[in-house]
Design a binder for these strands. Structure first.
Lengths: 356, 356
DNA sequence: CTGAAAGCGCTTACAG
DNA sequence: CTGAAAGCGCTTACAG
């Protein structure tokens, strides 16, 4: 009698889906003993594959969390990982700014990880997802990264929310992504040049394979077409997001029989490269050549002349990403899997009417 | 008999200082029961102040960690918090780069926090230190922040290592700080201008109260004195680390009866402001005016002309800070509480011999 | 490979 | 306010 009262708590426990499933509940559901379930949770070797699979299933169905995970989740502030492929540009810094601002007001903490995607995410997405689950992370924000299906499904299985900011390739339909209105922005930039009187407008784009490049290019093409302006193949050059490509592209465009009077660059770096090379070649901007960039990074203001650009709301994009992530983390349903924030044409000194 | 074997584990436990002190050991040392010690650890109200104090003392002497803390520390990768007062400049970004690079190779994770020091650290250093201890943080790197004694002692009590990068005020002797050879750098910049033939060299410094500003100023003064060059009060202007101050300072210097032929600026932002304002005023650099900056941020290369500067090894400073922090975390003894990495004069287009 | 038994380290309810 | 007792949720050692 004394013996049995002592063990009340080891008798089969009714499944309690409500708050926090215990190992005992998982074991009951899987039809194994608590020690066996414990071994599976702790990744011990001495469990048959069949048993392990059954237990893993029960674990996932009940959404089991170890006491450590439970307590971490209860005690710790939400920790969100933010992944950059590289942190070189002020573009990244602006996004990070937005994320940090939202984090401060929402009480989240930000773990920064910086590495080429193939090192950080691709090598073993399973293990990264597992680690994040173990440590109770609130989710992952990936900035301008390349995704593959294996990575994403690993996160999905561990129920770790993922939000992509300006992903390089279109993410699967069930990943939330935040971007800007690249197509509309490209169109607005081109319309601006057309309105100034330009007819021969070239596009010096970013990488052809990257989605936002394509959208900007097609915005440009749409504007040109709607005004009945011809675009030859030589006037559209796709390359890289960098100053060197701006330098190189400008040289190529100037070799054309009828060089353009205006250039819409795929981003600000390209545009700043065009500006620098123009200065070296003695081409005055905006008198002899108008230049429009894309992004709206801080150094646009310091260039000579200051750069007309299509500004992305980079900080807002960062903030929006964090908010979307935390909503998912708290189990809310999002209105939309894809959010595009509006771009805004900022006219500065690098554009003017073409010379007569 | 049965009863007593069942309770073997509740009998007084011999103190085991070695690995992981248990609550039972803490209770024994404090001369209270385990439940009472538990209440103190969990911050319950129903403990007398006297008892609480005794238990807290035992807790700290034994270095007690809750099971959560123990497991976090064992399981989680080391998480280091990095605090910036602001993340606006590429200066910060370069340091962050260095920290991230070291973190990647040492397997640490970086939690970024960005807030003015008075909000993030000053308001309740106790609570921040407590939170960091609870969550098993490896330590704190504070970048160009202001410290006060209360903040630091809170961290010390919780045994949380702190490393300061380029602290604005001299930290207490027992805080590790990483900086650059500001005095030697200021001297080298000035020597360079003297070697080019300049005699009237002005200094447009950063905030007078900030330590690195003072060191750069005194490096400048030392170089001037060693060459027997006079320095008038009007030729040394201390202000802010920003472009606006460069603009303002240049205007003031040009109003002097005998304006300087060269300016040593307290940092690159000031120097870039001088360059921008020179352009607007039609003063050609380096023909009519030589300019030297300090820091070595990436945009120095893009200015027109490219800026001669004293480069700080910002990335190395970041890496060194993280390594020093992790060494402390692992209980190693550091060679030195203050590390100064060498600066390097980088000569570009903004300096030349004075006009004849 | 599995699980009954014992144990661990802590917390909770409650009698005093 | 304190602590003996009971309990919790898990892990460990080990018999089968």
């Amino acid at each position: 009698m004394n013996e049995s009262t002592k063990r009340v708590h080891t008798e089969p426990v009714p499944p309690n889906m409500a708050a926090k499933p215990t190992l005992a509940e998982v074991a009951a559901r899987a039809g194994v003993s608590v020690p066996t379930a414990s071994k599976v949770v702790n990744g011990r070797a001495d469990v048959s594959p069949t048993t392990r699979a059954t237990v893993v299933e029960a674990l996932e169905e009940l959404g089991y969390r170890s006491p450590l995970q439970r307590k971490n989740r209860a005690t710790q502030s939400t920790v969100v990982e933010v992944h950059f492929d590289a942190l070189g540009s002020t573009y990244s810094l602006e996004i990070l700014h937005g994320i940090m601002a939202a984090a401060a007001s929402l009480g989240a903490e930000i773990i920064l990880s910086v590495a080429p995607a193939d090192l950080a995410l691709a090598i073993s997405p399973e293990r990264r997802a597992q680690r994040m689950a173990d440590e109770g992370r609130g989710g992952l924000i990936a900035v301008t990264s390349t995704f593959d299906a294996a990575q994403l499904s690993a996160f999905r299985r561990k129920r770790i929310p993922v939000v992509a900011i300006d992903p390089l390739n279109p993410p699967p339909a069930d990943v939330v992504s935040i971007g800007a209105t690249n197509w509309a922005g490209g169109k607005a930039a081109t319309e601006h040049l057309v309105a100034l009187g330009h007819r021969r407008i070239a596009h010096l784009g970013g990488p052809e394979a990257v989605e936002c490049s394509q959208a900007r290019l097609h915005g440009y093409l749409a504007a040109m077409r709607s005004h009945g302006l011809p675009v030859t193949a030589a006037e559209v050059l796709m390359g890289e997001f960098g100053q060197d490509w701006g330098v190189e592209g400008l040289r190529r465009l100037l070799r054309l029989p009828a060089p353009p009077t205006a250039i819409f660059a795929g981003n600000d770096s390209i545009a700043l490269g065009v500006l620098a090379e123009s200065r070296r070649m003695g081409i005055t901007v905006p008198e002899s050549l108008s230049v429009v960039g894309f992004d709206g990074v801080p150094q646009d203001v310091d260039s000579a002349p200051a750069l007309t650009t299509v500004a992305q709301p980079l900080r807002d994009m960062g903030s929006a990403a964090l908010r979307a992530l935390l909503r998912q983390f708290h189990g809310e349903v999002l209105d939309s899997r894809r959010v595009e924030l509006a771009t805004r044409l900022v006219v500065r000194g690098s554009t003017a009417a073409p010379a007569r």
